[in-house]
Amino acid sequence: MFDFLNNTGSIPIDYYLWLSGVLFCIGVMGVLLRRNVIIMLMSIELMLNSVNLLFVAFSTYLGDAKGQVFVFFIMLVAAAEVTVGLAILTMIYRNTKSVDIDFLKNLKG
């Protein structure tokens, strides 16, 4: 499995696929496992970053710079998402004095 250690030129694209899959699943686990909204947002960032990593890997692999431009846009969207998400979170905290996701059942009726 580690025969590529002897090869100093490049790293097979498969390894980036593995790494990115593992990181994405850790992010999914974070969203499912925790109740703290901040940590759920951070897990979403983790998932976005694993996808970014794969985008860059394939962009380099295919010799096409467009993938890296898309990573740039994903970063922009992630920044906007976090800004609004944290603003909503502070409002929720002001009303419920908690960042526990299980308290947010008001829409359930």
């Binding site: 030129g9 790293i11 710079a65």
Partner: peptide, 15 residues
């Protein structure tokens, strides 16, 4: 997935 191996990935100037 079987992806073809490739060389010179790290010499790319795309980034």
């Amino acid at each position: 997935v079987s992806l073809p191996s490739f060389d010179g990935m790290m010499d790319s100037e795309n980034g």
